[in-house]
Amino acid sequence: MTLPRRRHGAAPWLFLAPFLLLFLLFVAVPFGGALWLAFRHGDAATGAAGLQFVGLGNFRFALADPLFWQSLGNTLVLTLLAGVPQHLLALALAWMIYRYLGRLTGLAGIVGMVPYVTSAIAIALVFTTLLSSEYGLVNQWLARIGLGPFDWLHDPLLLKLSIAALVCWRYVGWNTVLYLTALQALPVALLDAAAIDGAGGWQRFRHVVLPQLRPMIILALTLTLIGGCQLFDEPFIVAPDGGTERAGLTTTLYLYRLAFDAGDLGGAAAMGWLLLVSTVTLVLAFNLLWGRGAWRRVE
């Protein structure tokens, strides 16, 4: 049976117009522009006429540029350094809040979100002050137990750790809320049954809660992976030039500097596309390895 076709005229398009307009302006046009730029080379200051078609030249340049590879390596290392502790802490925090805070759970969620909604610039300024080698509180505290001083913001390894700590602190609350939401959706009977069977707190968490949280863990890790590949704010404020030996130079920071400091919009656009391909590949690989079944709809 086929339904009779009804003429709606322009009405559906009018309803769709706000979305289509925003999509065109903020997604399609920038994507198209970035694709156009990726095949052109020249100083942005010369205008569109000064940007010559160079075929795959920008991609060849990016792949031959050691700084691009270093920035990709930095991005991956920072994603792992910030991501792994972030999720371990968030899972533990979510479980503790769920078990012990009762009616205060909502309040804990709000408090956890504060770093996430606070301006990245304010956070980074506070962190750089805390981590200052000469006047920072962190070094003062460490000095009391006979450690340091550490050059948190200039030593290449410590700079990475500092940026990772900043990112971790900023997003741990967000992930806690994600896990808390998933925990609250768990059937209480499951945990009660495990308790009746004699499972302790850790056993219930390990054998009942974690498997049930798997879809949320996969989602949260996927979001962290995507966010990590786009990491810009924190390294830009802590070490705008990438820091000592470019230890804090992420790919997004590098392509920003390439586009705006050096005026090489084409090279930066090509790197942007390569970063997109790397991100999608990573996310797909991660989901193939660990995400099987996680997105399956539960009937």
Binding site: L125, T128, T129, S132, S133, E134, Y135, D151, L153, H154
Partner: peptide, 11 residues
């Protein structure tokens, strides 16, 4: 061992 034009440098 610090960067110029930072809070630490000014201090």
């Amino acid at each position: 061992r610090i960067n110029t034009w930072t809070n630490e440098w000014a201090a």
